[in-house]
Design a protein around this nucleic acid. Sequence first.
DNA 1: ACGTTCGGGACGGCCCGTTAGT
DNA 2: ACTAACGGGCCGTCCCGAACGT
Lengths: 219, 219, 219, 219
Amino acid sequence: MDEAEERDRSARVVVNSRGKGLKQERALRTRAHILAEAAKAFALHGFNAVTIQGVADLAGMTAGAVYFHFANKQHLAYAVTEEFYTRWPALAGEVAKLDLSPADALIEFLRRTALAFQNDTVVQAGARLQIERLDAQFDLPAPFDVYGRLLSDFVGRAYDSGEFDTGIGQASLVRVLLSAMFGTQHISWVRSDRADMRERTEEVIQALIDPIRRPGTAG
Amino acid sequence: MDEAEERDRSARVVVNSRGKGLKQERALRTRAHILAEAAKAFALHGFNAVTIQGVADLAGMTAGAVYFHFANKQHLAYAVTEEFYTRWPALAGEVAKLDLSPADALIEFLRRTALAFQNDTVVQAGARLQIERLDAQFDLPAPFDVYGRLLSDFVGRAYDSGEFDTGIGQASLVRVLLSAMFGTQHISWVRSDRADMRERTEEVIQALIDPIRRPGTAG
Amino acid sequence: MDEAEERDRSARVVVNSRGKGLKQERALRTRAHILAEAAKAFALHGFNAVTIQGVADLAGMTAGAVYFHFANKQHLAYAVTEEFYTRWPALAGEVAKLDLSPADALIEFLRRTALAFQNDTVVQAGARLQIERLDAQFDLPAPFDVYGRLLSDFVGRAYDSGEFDTGIGQASLVRVLLSAMFGTQHISWVRSDRADMRERTEEVIQALIDPIRRPGTAG
Amino acid sequence: MDEAEERDRSARVVVNSRGKGLKQERALRTRAHILAEAAKAFALHGFNAVTIQGVADLAGMTAGAVYFHFANKQHLAYAVTEEFYTRWPALAGEVAKLDLSPADALIEFLRRTALAFQNDTVVQAGARLQIERLDAQFDLPAPFDVYGRLLSDFVGRAYDSGEFDTGIGQASLVRVLLSAMFGTQHISWVRSDRADMRERTEEVIQALIDPIRRPGTAG
DNA sequence: ACGTTCGGGACGGCCCGTTAGT
DNA sequence: ACTAACGGGCCGTCCCGAACGT
């Protein structure tokens, strides 16, 4: 009852805490642990095939314990997706520190995206959950928005710096890049379990970025 | 269980047929009808959310009737997917009849692909079922293979005809095109329920094909 | 989803039936059988303590079979209550055939009420379910309405016939009689498992009816 | 589990107390507070629909705190019922102080009973819990015993004083009165949420007491 | 003593895919 | 082609303890 009440109990835990962070540390670890195992399960099997009991088994706990930290299965998926969305800004931030030219920064961002899909379970799970289009989408950002906005920033800077030919509209390029990266990731997953993710990403760069790069600006 | 047994009963029907075409015709129509309704359901809700009872309701029959034509739910999905795979060669065949230059034929094929995603429920259903990666994959062609091969043919002819710059490898171009089209279709579905599918496809053409087209070969 | 749809599947069965009453006879028997066992269970343990599995066990079937006939547990209780409500008019009808004076008819109705509480599981179950005041009360008549109206009829006829003193208002008498009978039944249940139901009912008659009966009208 | 152990921990608290009245006072207040909220909940929703967590929420505490004061949910209900039973003797005591004739005292007692059902949450909760017939009945007085005995006292005194006709046996009158009052209370609850409790009680008095009252003894 | 946080364990409702028997 | 029934399993909830402060 009283649905919108709270996302999950962890919220309440945090609220109730008044500096006594001791116990909660364990709880937070437990929660994170469950989340990690859930991410694995979602990544491997998709939302429907995952059972709470299965997640609990992976996490070495009982289903009841999982329900202490997450109100229901949807919220578990929600939490994974939420964490998934934090990955891209973090990645962009790291790239920003690297002091590269705008075009090179964009390329580096794409390359690290590929790595994330290969290695980061949360990213894999998030992508899969998103693709499965569960009905209740909560109030999360729309799919592709976060990543699309970051791409847009990188591309915008490259256009502004004069590194790119302006043969194609900036917004169009972003959309095609987004589509190509998403498609690449998915197909690489289906065909090679992501083994060729990096080569395929290089091909995207070759096909979409190299051609519009002004001569003499290559990294 | 007893898997290899038969794909579905319709096979047997065909085998058993010895001139009693009357009943079979009705049965075939019923089967096709169920399939069409199942495609709608799968396209809208995905495999798991679809129930046999739901399909039966849509088709105006009972679940038992569905089970007469399809051994189980997997086979229903299988049949939809199978039909989905026939769409691409058909589409390519139509394009071939149009007597276009190889590059124009490729472009036309992409444009018709976009239309198919917009209008053809079987295509929509097939794409969604494939994306959901159900465990039992039967002995169908691997996802993207059929479409990829056709793309490869079109691109190959364009390369051979000298319409395309050879800046990027042929196979690479095909893969990026495939990824971009798949990604475009999915994102267009998520974001606009496929309303902008055509504009987005034009952007793919602009970004991936126009730049490598030799001057003076434009349609 | 689509809640109000149908009360339970039996409705659909009936609707779908087009004269082929054969199969349904078995189904109807099964349904009645489940209902009878459910009544026993509800009478003994109350709504909450009864499980669908328990009813199924009593009925010698699986829970799934129960769900074929009744959409859910609430509807099972609903069906029992519905049948419970048919009992009182039936009882009144039998009494009416007996050709008694109005006052005697009233008394006979009360006595048979007592017997029904002693012997009729559906009556016991209905009374208990009603007392537990489950939230969703469907569109059934309000509790006590059916019985109250019948009482009102009997009392009214006795007043009209001049058998009763008019010391107390007719409507008041009905309400007190109703309360006394309901209370008697419940207390008899709690205290003696209904063993003394008949004596207690006689006491109600003595206390409430005998005093207002005109001399010379006794049965 | 170890049933007879202890009713609830409050017992131990009392035993252990040796002058440290300070803490206990808070504990006792907490306990009383929980009990009051539990009574509200039981009165409104019945035993099964009440959850320990719900009571804790109402009381502004955690479920664990409730479990400190009450061993389990049954004991919570037990404690409410126990308090419920104290109400009737208290009521009778107040009436006794009023210096009324025996018959008038009886009537006053009935009227105050009606008021209690209207206003006293504990009474409402107790009545409901009793009616739901939970399995474990502890060692509480049997339902209706306390109230019945008091009624018996009042009626006995009225008989002894010669205010009542002896047309009906004393014990019978008590039983019918008890039934009528219980039924009245329940039906008034169901039909009008107790709004007409007082009028209905007057009708009981009219129907059961007035007719047997000797002329010239009216209040 | 009093209260909280975290977690265990059990199970009930319900649904759904599926199959005999017509 | 349908009716009736089976069997299995998943979600979610609830009662309750155990460890740990305060």
